[in-house]
């Protein structure tokens, strides 16, 4: 193949520019020289920089104490001899069976008898679930009980829900009997 003169000129120009650019490249970065060997006899071998201040552990002042929730002792007495029945659930489930419905029917009767009472429905789970999901499952159980009571005519603003997941077992034993006691919606009076 013939090289045209202009092509050859272009090649020379590109070469010149490229080599020139290469030549003008900044000098290679100095390879680090390993420091002189640690001579056991020499005492002049200390790291030259001054010591760095260590990040010390900081003290942790106590958290501010929140006010005590208002304790109303006659509500305590009511809950100690509670007129409400708990509702029990199957493992991992939040469905209310016929026994649960019967308990809720009775609870609705109590609520209609004391119309000024506000209750909290606590949702609980047994220890065989995992901690985090059980907080959600407990809520679903409490909400299921609440929904049924609303369907019986109890005003929604009298029924609060809270989930304790598996954190507050009623029976801490590791038996089937204990577990079935812990899978529940539990009713407490919280104001009257």
């Amino acid at each position: 193949m013939h090289f045209r003169r202009t092509t050859a000129l272009w090649i020379l120009i590109v070469l010149a520019v490229t080599v020139g650019a290469c030549g003008k490249k900044t000098p290679p970065v100095a390879r680090p020289i390993p420091p002189p060997p640690a001579d056991p006899a020499s005492s002049a071998n200390r790291p030259p920089t001054p010591p760095e201040p260590i990040a010390e552990n900081r003290s942790v002042p106590p958290e501010p104490i929140a006010e005590d929730p208002l304790k109303v002792s006659d509500i305590d007495k009511i809950n100690q001899n509670s007129p409400f029945q708990p509702v029990f659930f199957a493992l991992d489930m939040a469905d209310i069976d016929s026994t649960g419905q019967a308990a809720l029917n009775a609870n609705a009767g109590v609520l209609k008898k004391y119309p000024e009472w506000i209750i909290t429905i606590e949702g609980h789970a047994d220890e065989r679930g995992t901690a985090e999901y059980n907080l959600a499952l407990g809520e679903r159980r409490a909400v299921a009980a609440r929904a049924y009571l609303i369907s019986l005519g109890i005003p929604a603003d009298r029924l609060k829900t809270v989930s304790y997941g598996k954190e507050f077992p009623f029976d801490p034993s590791h038996t089937e009997a204990a577990w079935s006691k812990n899978r529940r919606a539990h009713f407490v009076v919280t104001s009257k």
């Binding site: 490249k25 420091p35 030259p48």
Partner: peptide, 29 residues
């Protein structure tokens, strides 16, 4: 061709790295 020329230029242009002054630690170990 330009790339080959550049590489050739680098290989021939290499110089030994400068020696740090005695008694001074280099920045990167």
């Amino acid at each position: 061709i330009a790339l080959v020329a550049c590489a050739a230029a680098v290989l021939t242009a290499q110089t030994p790295p400068p020696t740090p002054p005695p008694g001074q630690q280099p920045d990167v170990i």
